[in-house]
Design a protein around this nucleic acid. Structure first.
Lengths: 132, 132
DNA sequence: ACATATATATGTTATTAACATATAGTTCAA
DNA sequence: TTGAACTATATGTTAATAACATATATATGT
């Protein structure tokens, strides 16, 4: 999709404070396997915690709550997770999420795709190193 | 974007011939650094050859000529490559492409991003391995 | 003569991250 | 006491582009 903080600009114009000009792209829909894995590791996590944990996977200090909650909803619609409101606690209402068997299955399938992608990136870097 | 051959379907419905159900996603806009590297390695390549060479990077047997030519046009608009029609040859008219200094510069910038992505995928796989 | 390969290209659609904005309950600092 | 910050959840809108579809033209092979 668009590049972080660079919407509507040419690739070569996308500079800010002398920072790296390359697109801040990541593997498409990488948020989904990350959420699946996080929910495997920590069942009954709630959204805000998942938002924080996503930083471990490179989602950056400005993880987007819109993307997170929309993905969680879609994953629930697809039967990959289930959720319920946590009761009896003080503070803002919390919704906790749990992986389903289908979600666990998809996690394993994602891993195969991630392995392929890793290989492709490694191959790219090998060819690049041959030149520079 | 959408998943290869699975437009308009839920993730969990996206099965075909018992194949892997996971999304065939790749790093966003990965075609660009691949084209930049290919043009560094082989200056004056033409589109159709680049289409074939992209398979090395995981773009699959059905690399999309639409995506290729559109990306080449945008890269030329952005000053990353330049092109001219090859003359004096028989057969369909060929357009050959050449990297510009700006394009080479962006190639190096892309490499940093690709390294970060590789690290994130590796981190994900390490955490996954801890569980399974 | 027709199919396939070699070449280039545009139109359209689906998807979703980025960006924007909103509400609400608590805690903490001034 | 008040306001900011943190903790929580969520929807609306836009930009970008890969996927999908389709097209034209020149050669070669059967």
């Amino acid at each position: 999709m668009t590049i972080c903080g660079q919407k509507g600009k040419k690739t070569t114009e996308k500079l800010e404070g002398g920072k790296c000009s390359c697109p801040e792209s990541r593997m498409e829909r990488f948020i989904q396997p990350c959420l699946l894995l996080l929910l495997y590791e920590y069942p009954y996590s709630h959204g805000y915690n998942l938002l924080i944990d996503l930083k471990d996977f490179g989602f950056g200090t400005a993880s987007d709550p819109g993307a997170l909650y929309r993905n969680l909803r879609r994953m629930e619609e697809d039967g990959l997770v289930s959720s319920k409101w946590e009761t009896g606690k003080s503070g803002p209402a919390k919704r906790v999420y749990e992986l389903t068997p289908e979600g666990e299955e998809l996690l394993h399938a994602w891993v195969e795709n991630i392995k392929r992608n890793k290989k492709n990136l490694e191959y790219f870097l090998r060819r690049y190193k041959k030149q520079f």
